[in-house]
Computed example of a mutant assay.
Amino acid sequence: MTASRGRTGRPPLTEERRAEIRLEIARAAVDLFVEQGVAATTGEQIGQAVGVSARTVWRYFPSKESCVSPLFSAGIDAIAACLREWRPGRPLPDAFAAEWETGRPLVVGPDPATVGALVRLTRTEPGLRAIWLQTYDEAEPAFARALADRAGLPADDFRPAVQAAMFNAALRAAVEHHAWHTDDTGTDPATVRAELAKALRSALAVASEGLT
């Protein structure tokens, strides 16, 4: 009779830990990009900053530019949830008030100053620009579904799709305006969040004119 062989090696990573590793890699990548530029940054350097191998970096991301995608997409689910819970007659910016007041991330991830620097890099780094625009392209269907749920409409209805496009464009314009007209170096994080929230409120006020 042969004894059953137990599983050896490290236990598999949980989804939560995988997400943490992705975020650690993203933060290391953007720090290196800001410090020395994208071209001069290697997968080995990104891995060393996190304490993992370059092979691990490439297991999570197909390119060094894509390493930053978790910072760009961190708030999509939170935004969609706010849209889904937005009540008729309530100003759209107010639907996000609780998140802004507590400093929880909505659009650009956990560190507004760091991601602000990253967004500024998208003006001169085509690879990062592509990832930035791809994030919003992928977010739009999620926003459309949330608006359709809110209105009790089918997921493929044309009206939520148009509304989501307007809302999405307003968000991106606000974040870019804030990043490109603000130097976050040495600025208190609370001030950065307040300035970004002000830009987002202005954008959502414009977007809400086309949303009901």
Results as ranks from 00 to 15, higher is better:
W180E: 11
R150A: 11
H181T: 14
A117F: 02
G127S: 05
A54G: 09
W58N: 01
D156Y: 08
G103K: 03
Q134K: 07
T187S: 13
E101I: 00
E35W: 06
E138L: 08
R55A: 13
H177K: 13
A161T: 04
K198N: 10
E176H: 06
I25P: 05
L83A: 10
A197P: 05
P154Q: 12
A199T: 12
A98S: 04
D31M: 04
E44H: 06
P160S: 06
D31S: 11
T56R: 01
I25N: 00
E209W: 06
E65S: 12
Q163C: 08
D157W: 08
P141H: 06
G75S: 11
A151E: 11
E99M: 13
L204H: 08
H181W: 02
D77G: 15
W58E: 03
A97H: 06
L153N: 02
V68Q: 03
A98W: 00
E35V: 04
L147A: 03
S63T: 06
L92T: 06
A117D: 08
T14L: 00
Q163N: 05
A199C: 15
P105V: 01
D111S: 10
G186Y: 14
L196N: 10
P110F: 07
S73W: 05
V52C: 10
V192I: 15
T122P: 07
G152W: 11
R7W: 09
P189T: 11
R84F: 07
P160W: 05
I131N: 13
A155T: 04
R10S: 10
Q134M: 04
R10D: 12
I46R: 06
A144R: 01
F61R: 05
R150M: 07
R123Y: 00
F158Y: 05
V38D: 13
L204V: 05
P154W: 10
L71W: 02
E140T: 01
N168E: 07
T191M: 13
A161K: 00
G75W: 13
V115F: 15
A28G: 15
E15G: 07
A165C: 09
P141I: 01
A49T: 02
L204E: 13
A97D: 13
F33C: 07
A190N: 08
G37K: 11
P126L: 10
P93A: 15
K198R: 11
T2K: 04
A165M: 12
T102Y: 14
T191A: 14
K198W: 01
A49R: 03
H181D: 09
L121P: 02
E176F: 07
A173F: 12
R55H: 08
R10F: 12
E140S: 09
E125G: 03
T102R: 15
A179K: 02
S66G: 07
G51D: 00
K64S: 00
D94F: 08
A40W: 00
P88T: 10
P110R: 11
T114W: 11
S66F: 08
V115N: 15
A161V: 04
A28C: 09
G152N: 08
P88I: 00
F143A: 02
D156M: 06
P141R: 07
L128I: 00
A29D: 02
P105F: 04
H177L: 14
V30A: 09
A97W: 05
G89I: 03
P160D: 10
G43Y: 11
C82R: 14
V50M: 08
P88K: 04
G51T: 05
R10V: 01
D188Q: 12
P105Q: 04
S202T: 14
